[in-house]
């Protein structure tokens, strides 16, 4: 029987991780600002960039 590819499973897991990180109630946590930039802005773009980085790492890895 064909098994689901591990890369697809890892990416789907990233999707499941991203959903709670990018929605409320976690979104109401960042407050204040850092280097003059609002924490909310940094948090959203930071988590987003993190997800993209991990997805790129998983998707482009050789030999999986």
């Amino acid at each position: 029987m064909k098994r689901a590819s591990p890369t697809r499973q890892r990416l789907a897991a990233l999707g499941l991780l991203g959903a709670p990180l990018l929605t409320y109630p976690l979104l109401s946590l960042p407050a204040g600002s850092l280097w003059g930039i609002p924490a909310s802005y940094l948090y959203l773009f930071g988590v987003w960039a993190g997800l993209i980085f991990l997805a790129a790492w998983v998707a482009e890895r050789r030999g999986t």
Partner: peptide, 9 residues
């Protein structure tokens, strides 16, 4: 879309 695309399967 970012989240949706992660479900490559």
């Amino acid at each position: 879309p970012t989240l949706m695309l992660l479900f490559v399967g």
